[in-house]
Amino acid sequence: MTPFPTHTAEEAQVPEQHTAQELADAVLAHPSVARLHGGAFGEIASYFPGHRITGVRMSEDGPVEIGVVLRLDRPLTETVDDLRGALAERLGGTRVDIHVSDVDAGDDAPEAG
């Protein structure tokens, strides 16, 4: 038995990368989510060799953070509660913080006049 792991740093990140991508895909599948958002300074992101996943930040000892732009098709609090519950269930009860960075009014927005 060797006292050191035999995998590379890149291999060690693969499970987290898949989880971050799976979370991003689950969030984007919600009909009230217009897109993921990285926050004011792009701080909500997960970084991997060669790419990053914007809108999902995972840490080993803290909550998972999700940044979104939501559609105005239903109350925002309902959408946030749906997302938080679904993601926490996937993560075995890990705390999930949802940051609504903007809203997308789409074609239903009243015209300025």
Rank of each mutant, 00 (worst) to 15 (best):
E11D: 10
P3E: 12
E11H: 07
H37Q: 07
R74P: 02
A45E: 13
G38E: 12
D107K: 06
S101G: 15
E10F: 06
A26T: 14
G85E: 12
P49K: 07
A105Q: 08
V80E: 10
G39H: 05
V96S: 09
V33S: 10
F48M: 03
A86L: 05
L91F: 03
P75M: 04
A88W: 02
L72Q: 09
V64A: 11
V68F: 11
D82I: 10
G38W: 10
A9F: 14
R35N: 14
V100Y: 04
E78L: 10
V14Q: 09
D102G: 04
I53M: 03
G92Y: 02
G38N: 09
E111W: 04
P110M: 06
S101E: 15
S46M: 07
S59Q: 14
Q21D: 05
T2R: 09
P5R: 14
G62H: 13
L91T: 07
A20F: 02
A86I: 02
G113K: 11
G85N: 10
P15H: 00
D81L: 07
F48K: 01
V14N: 00
G92C: 00
V64C: 12
D73I: 12
Y47E: 14
P31R: 15
V68S: 11
S46W: 08
P63D: 13
D73L: 03
Y47A: 07
S46R: 02
V69Y: 05
V100N: 02
A40Q: 14
R84P: 01
H30Y: 08
Q21V: 02
R90I: 10
E11P: 01
H18P: 00
V64T: 15
H30N: 11
D102S: 05
P31D: 15
R90Q: 11
G67M: 04
A40Y: 08
H51F: 14
L70T: 10
T19N: 01
T2P: 06
G93V: 05
E11T: 08
A86M: 07
D81C: 05
M1E: 04
P63L: 05
G106D: 03
G113T: 12
T6E: 15
L28V: 07
G93H: 04
R84V: 05
D73M: 03
D81W: 04
S59I: 02
E22W: 04
A88N: 03
V27Q: 07
Q21H: 09
E11I: 06
T8R: 09
A24V: 01
H51D: 00
S101W: 14
L23T: 07
R84Y: 06
D107L: 11
T8L: 08
D108Y: 06
T2C: 01
T8A: 08
L28H: 02
V14S: 01
T94G: 00
L76I: 15
G38I: 10
V64Y: 05
R52T: 03
T2N: 07
T77H: 15
H51N: 02
L83A: 06
R52D: 01
Q17I: 00
Q17L: 06
D102K: 09
S46P: 02
T77F: 14
L91H: 03
L23Y: 08
T8E: 08
E89A: 12
